[in-house]
Design a protein around this nucleic acid. Sequence first.
DNA 1: CATGAATGAGACTTCATTCAT
DNA 2: TATGAATGAAGTCTCATTCAT
Lengths: 203, 203, 203, 203
Amino acid sequence: MTATATERRRQILDAAVRVFARQGFHTCRVSDIAEEAGVAYGLVYHYFSSKDEILDTLFLERWDAMLAAIAQADASGRPAPAQLAAIAGFIVDSYRHDPELMKVIIVEVTRAANTFGRTHLARIRDAYAGIAAIVARAQADGVFRADVTPEFAAQAFYGAVEQVLTGWIFESTAVAPAELEGAKRMITETICNGLVGRRAGDR
Amino acid sequence: MTATATERRRQILDAAVRVFARQGFHTCRVSDIAEEAGVAYGLVYHYFSSKDEILDTLFLERWDAMLAAIAQADASGRPAPAQLAAIAGFIVDSYRHDPELMKVIIVEVTRAANTFGRTHLARIRDAYAGIAAIVARAQADGVFRADVTPEFAAQAFYGAVEQVLTGWIFESTAVAPAELEGAKRMITETICNGLVGRRAGDR
Amino acid sequence: MTATATERRRQILDAAVRVFARQGFHTCRVSDIAEEAGVAYGLVYHYFSSKDEILDTLFLERWDAMLAAIAQADASGRPAPAQLAAIAGFIVDSYRHDPELMKVIIVEVTRAANTFGRTHLARIRDAYAGIAAIVARAQADGVFRADVTPEFAAQAFYGAVEQVLTGWIFESTAVAPAELEGAKRMITETICNGLVGRRAGDR
Amino acid sequence: MTATATERRRQILDAAVRVFARQGFHTCRVSDIAEEAGVAYGLVYHYFSSKDEILDTLFLERWDAMLAAIAQADASGRPAPAQLAAIAGFIVDSYRHDPELMKVIIVEVTRAANTFGRTHLARIRDAYAGIAAIVARAQADGVFRADVTPEFAAQAFYGAVEQVLTGWIFESTAVAPAELEGAKRMITETICNGLVGRRAGDR
DNA sequence: CATGAATGAGACTTCATTCAT
DNA sequence: TATGAATGAAGTCTCATTCAT
């Protein structure tokens, strides 16, 4: 049974995720990807025009899902904290589902200011803008304070999430499910209510 | 008048900052650094044993200052929010003073999970630990809530700060002083009191 | 209605002429030929054993016609200048009829001393020898001077013709019919009677 | 005793001539040139930015000498046939002095319509134009017939010369000095006075 | 006959590092 | 201390050819 073109592409993409995560984009060779995928060297170039395009593809696939998640949270009509919680949850679940892919995206793209980050800057900013929009609406509704700009709030929120993932990425061992779930709660808690304490609990 | 050995080293380091910031560590060549510094190619290797060592030196110089700032904040005896504000202020001021150096450190080291970030992992974690210690004490004093782990809080705080800097790094234009100052306030405000609102306003 | 095997071969050969002329033999890919012919990649290898064989075939087809034309001129019994004029005319008409094919043959074969020119050297020399034979007979008949060797004369004649074609080949625009006809006359005129002037005008 | 930069460049250029002549530009590898020159692979790229540039340099060096020879012939004030003889002589002597270089220039540049010939088209045409200018003046002076355009005459003359060299290039053995000298005479004789015979000899 | 995916050897070029002067 | 020529390993990408369907 032969693989279809789509399956072959996926086979190579999946192998690339593992190789990029393990060795880093710059350090790995295209031959590593081919070997990991179990295909001939040249076949990689049959499906992708360059090593760059493989990473671009991986990023765009996942980032579009991210943008969709943000859009969905925005459209859900739920309270802003719940919307932010949904976004943080989506990102953490993305990590739980495929930590290697998230490692690649964060390390090689969203934080690579001179290479892929620059290339995909507009797409990346779309995500920040989506989060900022949620914040802005909550401010207009009087739910969020107005003395923190929506753009700043979005950066702080997203930065906190990404840093938590980065912490996991730097660890050698797998992250316990409880820690993943705990992180979801703590991110939203921290960003929405702050380290000082919860408003709801006040009297 | 000939430059002293120390001055020559500094001359090369400063040139490296500009080149790394402009082109990225992997993309630039050692000859680019030499050219930017106005010295001969081989002289770079007289003062540094490798290209890596240049970046290592730049990182360690600055990161030690960062650790010192954290230690100083920790030892200041001020309230935890003020201590965190001091740290955020230190980082933002570092960016104001030398945005290229901060760009290099963030883009090429603290976020480079497969290369320099791995090399300097212990040092980087020292910073997180220092922040976490501040949080932990505040929790013990009942100033900070206890349902967010100090380690997590440190990640969130540092991640928010670094993401704000990353936003500036990705911009092509210089950041206005007012924005820098505003960021200092908003970081601490957001992390300590949350987006929902200030406790001080409650009664 | 399906194409016959012969038609398919021709279809591929004709496409190859256009591609070789446009991009050059070394620069084009077999896939370019297949695409130009509108057939599948692998089909080229069903009809030809290699890329080389395609060019070999194109050359031999045309060069055999050239040898036939020379032989026919030789056998015509007309005066040597008329025989040379017939050969020059044949070559120029070949260009008029299919400039791309002549470009390919000249650029990729007769002038490719290290590759195809070496392969087809014997065939190419047959043409020079045929022209030389005409000259030799004219010398024996006292019509042509004897202090220019027939081999040299053949080279000069053929070289002049090929250079004229090369001039056209290098031009981007089509050659006017009048220029083609003028060239026929001038080639023979120049080689037979020289630039100094026509014998007929002498007394 | 170390070689100067100029000597090293020359060493590589000379090696390239031998390799290009032996194997052809497309067939040889840069490593062949380095090996032939007895230098490290990378040094070739220290002196030349690409394989192409090596050939460009070789061509331009020689072609500029050719243009100078044509200009000098043109300015000599001698009769047109003597001027053409001087040019033919220069080219033949160039071949005698360095047959490999002339092989490379002819095979890889002046006849390479899709690659280097196209690149250097303007320079190549300068030579034809220089020869045409000599013819045109001779026509104006009534020395050359006017019913052959100067441009055509230049092509025929240059083509005859280049074809004679091509004949030598295709041979495996060295060309006898007598043949070289004979060629000089016969080229001019043929182009100026034609195969039919010399005007001067008429009565 | 026809298709186009699969193979893998090979070439150019880059550039960190060394070293002779 | 200073120079920049010299080294050569390594990597990306190309593309002729094969082959399973």
